[in-house]
Design a protein around this nucleic acid. Structure first.
Lengths: 345, 345
DNA sequence: ATCCTCTATGGAAGGGCTTTCAGAAGGTAG
DNA sequence: CTACCTTCTGAAAGCCCTTCCATAGAGGAT
């Protein structure tokens, strides 16, 4: 039914090996033979069978990506970078949204299925030990994005430096009483940002006030959500006590919720409370958020590059690329009058 | 190197056929044999080779989805529905972001590669004729989401009814002078919404005023972007003339831009201008947008179901599922005081 | 005891490709 | 004219699985 290299070989009166060589651009085929094969192939409307190729080549030209939350803008933007680079190279990308630890394991397991994918990208998720061991043993290419493990390549964001820059920016604007609306501490970035936050204050001679430091109880999206920011801000306001004059918020999406909560209390941004957040997702522009920008698209590209290197050189040393977020000044911190402030309530 | 069914057969002293049957849950294997095989397989840490299975089964358990714009929230939410349903069924999803017609064709071409995927989902993109013909001829399963073609199954949104409901809602609130900020007319939904907009007014005895109807010149994302809404709103205001008292906007993301433009002109929403938009993406909640809700997640699930049916029954009649959007009343239309208005400038 | 039925099993064939290997054909040098 | 290369080519082997077919053996019926 389907047309195969055998059909072409017969029609073109050549061997199947020659047909295969033509399609693989082998140099050792004369121009005439090549032309003959190509013209027959075109006439018969031949399409190589991807799985047969993969089986014979022991290579699938497919990668999988496991992301924790499908609708998190950060992942979407990184993924876009990944897909664009990959698409151009003729690779395919399988996407797995893992909403729980079981799902993560299920998908990791599936990725290990021999031959299914040439490599796996894991986003922001801690790699369970048994899988770490298995992937390492079998030398299955694995690249971690926004996460890390000593045995595997990683693309990381320097949460420490990013947080410091944000906090120091606020300090440089004259703020001394700075609060922190953090995501859930079960997330590694949230842990790192909290530690860095305290240090950033301390090193400038400011004692962190635990009453205005809040780590989210929310578990959905590890607290990286608007609801989380909104509720946590309200709770912080509820407590009474002297308000912070500025806030560092661990993600833009939370900051959107924070803006809403502040507005409900008739507090103005940046006049009453200045805000700096983290990520620089597309959304943050709409709200005029000053934020620490992560080059998400770029991270995707680098992840692909790292992965391809790893596939080529399975025994190369483990690499780790670190991106230091850069400050994007908009209006929510009060330092940029030109930028229009969008505020949400 | 890798362990295959041959290894297992040898170790368990059975035939390869039996091993295969065990893994495919064939009933004609005695419990003892099955146990023996399973225990050996576990000991050797056996994993079936996906491509060999696909080759032998002539079935890959993989679908591809082609989406026009990776960062469009609408697609992301539908995709989430698709991936979740699929993941649970053991299917994999390959995602292709097509930013141009060439890319669309390239990806369609890739999806046709024999055996690569069991079916293809196309989102919001018109299917080029030559591909329509080829997919139909070869009976390659194809499902269109937010798009349609007489020869293929489709999951559609009733733009006509949705638009009518939106406009009639505004009319019921007393508005008579209603404008329209539309996306680029090269997009089918934009065309449908424009036609329905005019009809909805006419049927209530209102003559559409072309001066306050704007279809975007922007081509990026077919004009479904914040920038597009922002600029088009500004242009409309620039023109002078009597302002509309209400606006229908063809997507939430454009509405965000519209809000910003209005705020810059010190026009209040909903007092000076009421707004109803379309989509009900997550974002719209943050802005208090009254909008026509499309059940995106559900659409994804239905798309998967339709696809699986099509795979099972290649010759079944073409189906078309229609979703009628429902009105979600928040504050931007002025009808809901309880809902907090978030506004953007 | 004999024949038949039925079930569980082993193994070959087949799926479509890549790659290796041996050999044909053509060219060069002696 | 022979010997030896060099290139190009055809075909077999291999990738790992599913499935079909034939058969062995158990059990039932006579």
């Amino acid at each position: 039914m389907a047309v195969t290299i055998y059909d072409i070989a017969r029609e073109a009166k050549v061997g199947i090996g020659t047909v295969s060589r033509v399609f693989n651009n082998s140099p050792k085929v004369t121009v005439e033979t090549r032309d003959k094969v190509i013209s027959v192939a075109r006439r018969l409307n031949y399409q190589p069978h991807a799985f047969a190729q993969a089986l014979a080549r022991k290579r699938s030209n497919t990668l999988s990506a496991i992301i924790p939350f499908f609708t998190n803008y950060f992942f979407i933007e990184v993924l876009q970078g990944v897909q664009e680079s990959l698409g151009a190279l003729g690779y395919d990308l399988i996407i797995h949204g893992a909403n729980s630890r079981e799902q993560l394991e299920e998908y990791l397991f599936r990725s290990m299925k021999k031959g299914r994918v040439d490599g796996t990208l894991i986003f922001s998720l801690p790699l369970p030990d048994r899988f770490a061991q298995e992937f390492a043993e079998k030398k299955l290419p694995l690249v971690l994005v926004d996460s890390s493990h000593p045995k595997f390549d990683s693309i990381r964001v320097d949460n420490h430096e990013g947080t410091r820059a944000a906090v120091h920016h606020l300090i440089s604007l004259g703020h001394r009483r700075i609060g922190f609306i953090n995501a859930n501490l079960r997330s590694i970035p949230a842990q790192e940002r909290l530690r860095a936050f305290r240090e950033a204050l301390t090193e400038r001679g400011i004692t962190p006030d635990e009453r205005i430091i809040s780590s989210s109880r929310f578990t959905e999206n590890d607290g990286f959500s608007r609801e989380s920011g909104y509720k946590d801000m309200h709770e912080l306001l509820q407590k009474g006590g002297e308000l912070p004059s500025a806030l560092f918020v661990s993600s833009d999406i939370q900051a959107v919720g924070v803006l809403a909560a502040l507005r409900e209390r008739n507090l103005r941004v940046p006049e009453d409370v200045a805000i700096v957040s983290f990520d620089n997702i597309e959304l943050s522009k709409y709200f005029g958020l000053t934020t620490m920008s992560q080059p998400m698209h770029k991270m995707g590209e680098i992840a692909v590059q790292t992965m391809l290197n790893r596939i080529e050189h399975p025994d190369a040393d483990v690499t780790s690329v670190n991106f230091t977020p850069t400050l994007v000044v908009r209006s929510s911190c009060g330092a940029n009058r030109e930028y229009i402030l969008l505020d949400s309530n």
